[in-house]
């Protein structure tokens, strides 16, 4: 008996249905149901918009994610640029060193950060939160930018110089625009997980700062499945939106940078 090649995909399909599609459907179903009667309702969403505490947490989370993404970008771009200069990075070992933290569990890194702050007698709080977030997400920003900068054909730089562009102008008019696909990948890979993160916030602020991920987790943990699902759905919507926006921007250049 011959097995058709398409049937090889079956195990993956089952996996996707069980662990991706089904949970998503369940979230959607729970989000639109009344916890007592099980009837279709929008009250879970209405509750979110009428609970200032949760709404503020949500807005605050987006702000944190935004600032974190910006900080990562500001630090990562120059780093990636320097790394992409072959004279500095002949063996690619320096890139490895930047990527290395990605191999260690996020919780361990965060707990280590807590220990470091304790050791240095520095207070935990918002500052520590940003430090921990940048520390955790920086590699995800550096790598895609480094990738797109490294692939950038030097003849574009030469062409710009040839047309009268100073090194500064070359950077802003050629290097930056041509590395945008990498920047978008980096932004997505930092912004999306930051919105839903909660462990870093809990550990590095001693629960003083609450992010949206924590709100969802608390609700689910305390049995408010329907409300928690509605919150999760809202967050998914925001993430989906950012992906869409960046897709439109980088669709044209997708083959040049893209996700790792």
């Amino acid at each position: 008996m011959t097995v058709k090649r398409s049937s090889w995909a079956l195990p993956y399909l089952i996996f996707l249905i069980l662990f991706v599609a089904l949970p998503l459907v369940m979230i959607a179903v729970y989000a639109f149901r009344n916890p007592q009667t099980g009837a279709f309702t929008l009250e879970n969403f209405a509750k979110f918009f009428s609970t200032p505490h949760d709404l503020n947490t949500f807005l605050y989370s987006i702000q944190v994610a935004f600032i974190n993404t910006l900080l990562c970008l500001l630090i990562a771009y120059p780093a990636a640029w320097i790394l992409s200069k072959s004279s500095f990075n002949r063996s690619k070992i320096t890139v490895m060193l930047f990527i290395l933290p990605m191999w260690i569990n996020m919780l361990i890194r965060t707990l280590a950060t807590v220990a470091l702050f304790d050791f240095l007698k520095m207070p935990l709080g918002e500052g520590a939160l940003y430090f921990g977030m940048v520390y955790n997400f920086l590699p995800f920003m550096i790598y895609p930018i480094y990738n797109s900068l490294e692939k950038l054909d030097n003849s574009y730089v030469e062409a710009a110089q040839d047309l009268g562009a100073t090194p500064w102008k070359v950077f802003w008019k050629v290097t930056v625009p041509l590395s945008l696909p990498g920047v978008w990948s980096g932004v997505l890979m930092v912004f999306m997980p930051t919105i839903s993160t909660f462990a870093i916030a809990e550990l590095l602020t001693l629960n003083k700062v609450k992010l949206f991920g924590t709100t969802i987790q608390e609700n689910i943990n305390n049995g408010f499945w329907n409300y928690g699902s509605a919150l999760a759905l809202i967050m998914l919507l925001i993430i989906g939106l950012t992906t869409l926006i960046s897709d439109e921007d980088s669709a044209r250049d997708s083959e040049k940078g893209g996700l790792i």
Binding site: D153, S155, E158, A159, Q161, D162, L163, G164, D253
Partner: peptide, 19 residues
Amino acid sequence: PPYRRPFNTVFQRYALFPH
């Protein structure tokens, strides 16, 4: 530096800016 020389180049692979 090249950007101050009154020359312009036509490159072998053109090097037109794709953006």
